[in-house]
């Protein structure tokens, strides 16, 4: 077992992930007070999360078997677009999840 079902692998993964939580949240709490964040670095830190989330979401939705999958039959794509539009409008996470899942289910069953 080498994947998500392996306890040893997942435990090592979780501990490492926990370390990233503590290291990032603790960074400037633990560092000497004289240390300041240069402006360029702060800007880079600010945009990194958005870019990282994009790099996870976009290939997940827009590719299948490592090829671009732009199609009317790509139900995930349409569900995500519906959900994003609803969230931008309402800023309500539960409404957004419901809209996305309903869109996905309707497309899956009837399209």
């Amino acid at each position: 077992m080498n994947g998500i079902d392996s306890w040893p692998r997942m435990l090592i993964a979780f501990v490492g992930l926990g370390v990233t939580t503590v290291v990032t949240r603790g960074s400037f709490f633990m560092l000497p007070a004289s240390l300041k964040l240069p402006q360029r670095v702060e800007q880079a830190l600010r945009y990194a999360p958005a870019c990282a989330l994009t790099a996870i979401i976009v290939p997940g939705v827009l590719t299948r078997d490592q090829h671009l999958y732009l199609s009317w039959h790509n139900n995930e794509l349409w569900a995500v677009l519906v959900a994003a539009a609803v969230f931008a409008k309402t800023r309500n996470m539960m409404v957004m999840m419901a809209a996305g899942m309903v869109a996905f289910t309707v497309l899956r069953l009837y399209a």
Partner: peptide, 24 residues
């Protein structure tokens, strides 16, 4: 998908970098 753990950790680090700004 069985990606290398280093990639897993770096990705988490990137998403968590906003906490560095909060901490500062």
């Amino acid at each position: 998908s069985g990606a290398p753990l280093a990639v897993v950790w770096i990705t988490a680090l990137l998403v968590n970098l906003r906490f560095v700004i909060f901490a500062a």
